[in-house]
Design a protein around this nucleic acid. Structure first.
Lengths: 165, 165
DNA sequence: GCAAACTCGTTTCAAATGATACTAACGCGC
DNA sequence: GCGCGTTAGTATCATTTGAAACGAGTTTGC
């Protein structure tokens, strides 16, 4: 109801009518699905990893030991998703859990050496996929793209947030 | 295996190591989820429509009567998704089905007058959401963004396609 | 003609997802 | 210390998803 106020009126839309192909949320979703599908299949087929699992490995490789809560904040994934991803990785001994010394509810996750070497193995492939995707784009275009995506994300968060506080 | 050849070697990656925040597929997925979630909730709450249903309404409003196969080609959705979306809209009498005169397996879907007026009601809202999302961006930035998204989509399709023909 | 091969759309099934409810543990106030 | 509200993580359930199997209808080759 508050988004109605935000968005429903007063924008004086250019009265171009709606064409799906030119509609940004549609373009964004389609592009994201195509890219995610490609990446997800690559990780799944070659390493048996889901995307959430891979993200988890990445942040642990970057930031060292983290609790699940920190991972949730860092990766914009649901806490249930993180929990399941962590369990899967635990079973494969790619990450290890140690008790959090100051908080008995929480655990600290960290890569095992096995997990670290898997990360080292996958990372170049991940970068190569990115490079293949942006081949033919100018570097400043890529930089702008990333900036705009971040901006869109925060705009969406804003619009969603003020509708349900 | 052929994507291995395409992507696994020879790219001479700039050996910047992988940071998740700067990784394009990640940024794309996160941004898309944020935007899609916003839009999906809006359509669901106000009109009881899923995103696939809304897409179907859009293309029917744009292009007139289409078969499901044509809709699949037009919207990059799975045929199962389209089938289910069509059934939902049929039950609500927002679209109508007529037999395809030249092909007994196929049907032609078209908006009912009820469906058309729902479309007319939602379209301005959809455009307003888009306008709110891109508020603060320069028009040429938006144009570039759309172009880049399309390029990424086709690059992903290319990379996926040559891996499994 | 008609049988094999193919296409349109639906059904079926298994996996992924996320909202909700729950358990265990923390910290504050008293 | 001991309730009361809060937080970390897990379990449960309903919904969504797409892959594969299927039935009906069409096309091709002979």
């Amino acid at each position: 109801m508050s988004a109605q106020g935000q968005v429903g009126r007063g924008v004086q839309s250019h009265d171009e009518d709606l064409r799906l192909d030119a509609y940004l949320p549609y373009r964004l979703s389609v592009a994201s699905n195509a890219v995610s599908g490609l990446i997800a299949r690559a990780y799944q087929d070659r390493f048996g990893l889901t995307v959430p699992q891979w993200r988890l490995i990445c942040v642990l490789a970057e930031d060292g030991g983290l609790t699940q809560g920190q991972i949730v904040a860092r990766t914009v994934m649901d806490k249930v998703t993180v929990s399941r991803a962590a369990q899967g990785l635990l079973k494969r001994h790619l990450v290890a859990r140690s008790d959090h010394q100051a908080d008995g509810r929480s655990h600290v996750l960290a890569l095992t050496s096995e997990g670290a070497s898997l990360h080292a193995e996958i990372a170049p492939l991940a970068l190569a996929y990115e490079a293949a995707l942006i081949a033919g784009l100018a570097p400043d275009e890529v930089a702008l793209l990333k900036r705009l995506l971040t901006r869109l994300q925060s705009a969406a968060g804003q619009l969603a947030g003020d509708a349900a506080p």
